[in-house]
Simulated assay, not measured.
Amino acid sequence: MQKIAILCSGGDVSGMNAALKRFVEYTQAKGFMPYFIYDGFEGLIDNKIVRAKYSDVAGIITRGGTVIRSSRSERFMEKSYRLRAIDNLHSHDISSVIVLGGDGSFKGMQKLIQESNICFSGIPATIDNDIAGTEYCLGVDTALNIIKNAIDAVRDTASSFSRAFVIETMGRECGYLALVSALTGGVEMCLIPEIPYNLDNYKKRFMKEMKEGRSYFIAVVSEALKKSDMILEWFEKEIGMESRKVVLGHTQRGGNPTVNDRLMAYRFVTSAIDGLIAGERSSVVCYNDGGFSHKDIGEIAFEKYTICTDLLKLGMEYEK
């Protein structure tokens, strides 16, 4: 019986557990034997490879994070440790591995592809939504809903105290979370690395709105800019409004997965397993225009993601 393993690498996202549940159920339905690799690539090096059973995934679909845990592995950068990881897979007779992670995880996956005869399939799983070749990454919808709830809650206190609030979102070098959250959260300012901004333009608009009765402001700032404290001071000194900063941090990575992320987990895993069955050896499952496709790891791991033009145009309207 062919054996297939799955691991989670890099930052955890809500939806990973739903993916693990589908993995166990679908592999067995297709006549394969499923294995879990605990602690990501670190666990692969340390041979934390265990046969997965239905009981391992019972009741986990509502939980954020990943029950098989994740990691970032510096050891994996050394070839000797990668060869040990490959030997561990061979010792279990595992012929295929599914990797849930981001671009760093896929670069590690590509190294294993080059150094072994094992087949790999990647599933984009990062709230940053910054993987080239795919419109959507697992976990993004849950993260956006957490940010939406935070913005809605902050608006209540902002309006009650006539304050400005600066909400900092995650995103590493990508402003996707901040931009979509700002557009859907009805905020007054959005600052992301992809769009140049001019604070004088914002000041002119904000002062005009205050004369017309506006008593509070909400700004969403991407952590990539490292400008949250500066914007806080700007509100107080230039706009003359008492201000507070809210750093959402890792709350954006957890929580009960949304319906969309549960469904996307189901579909991503199904496509990954179907691809491995069809003979895909080194692909990443990508979602575009409502459908799934397999793209070679080389097209994904070393390409830079860019936010779609339509969203960027909407974001540029904030300074008008």
Results as ranks from 00 to 15, higher is better:
265 A>D: 00
40 G>V: 09
103 D>M: 04
202 Y>E: 02
283 S>G: 01
9 S>V: 10
25 E>A: 10
4 I>C: 03
198 N>G: 03
185 G>M: 11
309 T>P: 12
260 N>Y: 05
129 N>D: 10
319 E>G: 06
313 K>W: 01
39 D>L: 11
240 G>T: 05
284 V>Y: 01
181 S>W: 03
211 K>C: 09
188 E>K: 12
285 V>H: 06
199 L>D: 08
64 G>A: 11
177 L>V: 12
211 K>R: 12
280 E>W: 04
162 S>G: 06
238 E>C: 06
86 I>F: 07
225 L>Y: 02
114 Q>S: 15
237 K>E: 12
97 V>T: 04
33 M>S: 12
63 R>S: 14
20 L>E: 00
166 V>W: 07
204 K>Y: 07
223 E>H: 05
195 I>R: 13
93 D>W: 01
268 F>A: 00
202 Y>R: 07
51 R>T: 10
23 F>D: 06
121 S>Y: 02
226 K>W: 01
40 G>E: 06
191 L>H: 08
86 I>E: 04
241 M>G: 01
155 R>K: 15
72 R>Y: 00
37 I>W: 11
314 L>M: 15
31 G>E: 08
207 M>Q: 13
314 L>E: 14
84 R>E: 11
195 I>A: 08
320 K>G: 10
302 F>W: 11
60 I>M: 09
55 S>V: 12
150 A>M: 09
222 S>C: 14
220 V>M: 03
305 Y>S: 10
260 N>G: 00
255 G>D: 03
301 A>P: 04
303 E>W: 02
182 A>G: 13
57 V>C: 08
170 M>G: 01
292 F>E: 00
236 E>T: 02
52 A>Q: 10
269 V>H: 01
29 A>C: 02
180 V>E: 07
195 I>W: 10
141 D>R: 10
38 Y>L: 11
249 G>A: 02
12 D>I: 09
309 T>N: 13
83 L>D: 11
262 R>M: 09
282 S>I: 00
140 V>L: 14
8 C>H: 12
135 E>T: 08
199 L>R: 08
138 L>G: 08
152 D>I: 04
113 I>V: 15
90 H>T: 01
135 E>K: 13
